[in-house]
């Protein structure tokens, strides 16, 4: 396994110097279980960076730690040079624009589609007042996903899974994110729908120059839209490379199978146990 520091080295080699997010030796614990161990990674400004890995590798934990909603984490998280790792979740959103699109259906199901979007706008307005640059208005979002305009007065619980995912992404865009963390957008969706959502995402994010850290289990599609990618194995970064390079790397496949076999043989938990 590569030294985590080498990840940064690869970044420099590729020549991406304008780093938006800089994470140094991040660890996440859930009680005695260490889900993420000493992870360092960079996310370049205005591009999509993917974080791939097998189930249970700790991808979501990293995103949740970045958003500030894990009970215990250590390490430094710098966004545009400012350390946000000690800030509560709310401040990270409002003052720094770190917005998480959570795993699964991240919408308020008993509220209407429009109300869900309005919640995003409320924060977006505050962010704009603080000088946020990435801005979206309701009209733009409706143009991206016309279905949301049609369904405006319906409760979100009556939307299909894909529509709910579009709603969650739209609401997050309305919050004027400086860094958008997208957690498993494909989860539980039909393949054609995944394709569509990813197409729209890559277009919008590129057009509006949103900085994105994408966590995805579907490696193939994630590496298509991302420019750079990290491979996470059992809470540790094992590979970092431009997507095109990583896609061809044989270690990618082994990572998936390897984790699976260690789980089966039962020693995964021993390796992940923290030293408390």
């Amino acid at each position: 396994m590569d030294d985590p520091k080498s990840a940064r080295g690869v970044m420099d080699f590729v020549g991406v110097s304008r780093t938006a997010l800089e994470v140094t030796s991040l660890s996440v614990n859930y009680g005695a279980i260490r889900a993420v161990q000493d992870v360092s990674l960079d996310v370049p400004r205005q591009g999509i960076t993917a974080l791939v890995g097998a189930n249970g590798a700790g991808k979501s934990s990293i995103l949740r730690a970045l958003a500030g909603i894990v009970p215990e984490c250590h390490g430094s998280i710098k966004l545009n040079g400012v350390d946000v790792s000690k800030l509560p979740a709310r401040k990270r959103v409002i003052d720094h624009g770190i917005v998480l699109v959570p795993e699964g259906r991240g919408v308020f199901t008993t509220m209407t589609v429009r109300e869900n979007l309005e919640l995003g706008l409320l924060i977006g307005d505050r962010r704009r007042a603080l000088g946020a640059t990435t801005t979206f208005d309701l009209e733009e979002v409706y143009n991206l996903f016309p279905i949301l305009r049609e369904r405006g007065d319906k409760r979100a619980q009556y939307l299909s899974g894909g529509e709910q995912q579009m709603l969650a992404i739209s609401r997050s865009l309305l919050m004027s994110p400086a860094l958008l963390l997208v957690d498993e957008p494909s989860m539980g969706l039909a393949p054609q729908l995944v394709r569509r959502i990813f197409d729209v995402m890559s277009n919008v994010f590129a057009q509006h120059k949103v900085t994105v850290l994408l966590v995805e289990q579907d490696t193939k599609i994630a590496l298509e839209i991302a420019s750079f990618a990290y491979l996470l194995e059992r809470g540790v970064i094992s590979l970092a490379a431009p997507s095109a390079v990583l896609r061809e790397d044989p270690r990618l496949k082994i990572a998936y199978l390897g984790v699976a076999s260690t789980i089966l043989s039962g020693d995964a938990s021993d390796n992940n146990r923290g030293n408390r």
Partner: peptide
């Protein structure tokens, strides 16, 4: 929003 899902409410600040 808080009533339906406090965790999500915290995520949307």
């Amino acid at each position: 929003a808080v009533s339906e899902n406090t965790h999500l409410a915290e995520l949307v600040a």
